[in-house]
Design a protein around this nucleic acid. Structure first.
Lengths: 209, 209, 209, 209
DNA sequence: AATGAATGAGCTTTCATTCAT
DNA sequence: AATGAATGAAAGCTCATTCAT
């Protein structure tokens, strides 16, 4: 009897996939903690518990892996938010729920912010892809809400700008409130209230007598 | 009259300052074009037209120079915006003018965006300083406008969040519309309109029948 | 029979060890000829016939290798002397034999002196270790000889001082007589005689009428 | 009235000499504390309180200054020992007094040991000069003592070897007992007693039945 | 597929020396 | 004589990638 009998012996294919996953996870952890720059092959493979050369059996280059990080985790984020806001209506409330869900995702994935933000420079293709992955559905959602009369009068092009404003808002607020370094403030209700008020009613008084 | 008055050759002091400035400019250009990572001493000095060792006669380390880039150019940006929006009233219009002025500054300083955004990771002290330099006066402005009745009902903490939302909006919109790579769209009126509508009236309809 | 038995090509393991040894030898040669200061990585690797980067596959740092030089060769010296003086009695004669053997070792290892003497400043940990490696057994030998009545009246602390006197004597005499630079004198019988007389009878007349 | 009137205004010549001395002192201090390696021109001039370029108005090169350090301070040492042992008789006692005076000099000049020992490699010409400065008079002294019947039967060549044995003994004992790093033992009486016994009577019993 | 040594270009920094002011 | 910026070679070390085993 083989020494590994009894356990579900992994097939060659499965083992392969397992090593790949461990490399991917190691890279994500390192980038999340220390940034793309520090994610050297030797650090990644050491963390993954495989030999350095093994890396190149699974990825063509360092950049190839790095370029997969954000899209992959980004999809998880999108799905996470979708799942948490599935039944919320009307769209106004749903958007606020999405905003909250984003911060919940950050709490569960503290490395994501760094993977996301540094990608703009360290994995630009991945970054563009991710922004598109996020903004396209977002744009669609807003157009639908407009069709349903839930949104004020914005043109398509304006809604596209709005999408980037909303994404930018998330991003900067998360920087400010979520970086957990030595006692930074956690996101607070004021932030959620501010976001809600801005989206519903705007910042400035409309009437100037 | 100073002994060096007239069209004298540059004094020792002036020459020194000139070299320093050329190193600073070279570094700013390189970071703006290719990022902090690529701003190696050898590239900087080559661009500045001095020997490599000369760098260390003017800056104690690579990081020291890099840390001065954003605060210096950031102050220029702040002053640029201030000058362009000095007389605009009411605050609502002034904020829109500031927003426009920011994009005008970007047009004149195409490298600034990269210097700013990458600084979060490559010059974190400088980044924190800059964000503070921008957000503190911004927060004050909004509180004053609120006192003047120009702003809707926001608490202080909410206004602080608003500041970061507005800064984040600028940042993401500029990414989307200003990166001049291969024919990206220039900022268009839709963007300004969207920004204006969002700030004045918000995104969603307030009344849900 | 092992699969690599016979005149097989060197195994991976053996090749690895061979490169390491060649780096070690190159470093020892360079330090012996030109001093620690001159033992740069590039010189060492050039002499060893490998690429510069290869060095760091075998040693964590320049200092790590340099710190191994003296202890390794120092042990060889100790063993060399031990082997050559194994059967000499009494202790008085044995000490003289050790003294001679030390100079014989120097003739066969002309670089050793420099590796030893410069280590005090360039590899201080190694130096301390070596001095201890030499002086501890030396001290023990002298105490035993004293117990056997072969040594005059010295306390333990005095014998420890004697050890350093003897080591220092070797060291300075070797400097004077062995440095092979441009025709320096070889160690001569006068030196051995002086050493013998000093140890047996001392320098000064004891009786002053 | 000139601002410096009243004080003995230094002549140009005196000022020059003063700067030179301050450079010399700075270099000696640095080498004593941190070694020749660390004695860079910039460190020396900074410590001396003059501009870097000033160095080359007083010394042709770094090595030139470094080469003067040991001979100069070495002469001070020789004179120090001479003064302290002028009247001691007989020679046997005088030699012990010289040995003690050497250690007294070290206490007053804690940097000397490093200047001396590192010189072998960092200022070899200076080192050879110093050893000669010390050993030639030493040899003469011993020959005279021999002529006076105070010394046992040694040939000239043997006495020369003895000189180096005695110098080596000093050097190693001082290393062992005088380096003041974190609580190293101070030279103790055992050391002086051991030295005395070795010189008067030797180490081993002469008679072996 | 897994391994890990080999490679060499690249990095930041230090430094003795020169030289115009 | 004093100054201090300019120079460029050299240092130790890192790293993505290759490739023989």
């Amino acid at each position: 009897m083989s020494p590994t009998a009894g356990r579900q012996k992994l097939s060659r294919r499965e083992r392969n996939e397992e090593v790949r996953r461990s490399l991917f996870k190691a890279a994500g952890d390192i980038v999340g903690e220390r940034g793309y720059e520090e994610a050297s092959i030797s650090r990644i493979t050491e963390r993954a518990g495989v030999a350095l050369g093994t890396f190149y059996n699974h990825f063509a280059s360092r950049q190839e892996l790095l370029d997969q990080l954000l899209p992959t985790i980004g999809e998880e984020m999108i799905e996470f938010i979708r799942q948490r806001t599935l039944d919320v209506r009307p769209e106004r409330e749903r958007e606020l729920a999405r905003f909250r869900a984003f911060f919940e995702f950050l709490v569960e994935n503290p490395g994501f912010l760094r993977i996301l933000n540094e990608a703009e420079f360290s994995a630009p293709d991945a970054y563009r892809q991710h922004i598109e992955n996020v903004s396209l559905p977002y744009h669609r959602i807003l157009r639908r809400a407009r069709a349903a009369g839930e949104i004020r009068s914005f043109t398509d092009a304006e809604l596209e700008a709005v999408v980037h404003i909303l994404i930018g808002a998330r991003s900067y607020l998360s920087q400010r409130y979520s970086y957990a370094k030595d006692g930074a403030r956690l996101p607070d209700e004021a932030m959620f209230d501010a976001y809600a008020k801005l989206l519903i009613g705007g910042l400035f008084e409309e009437t100037q007598p």
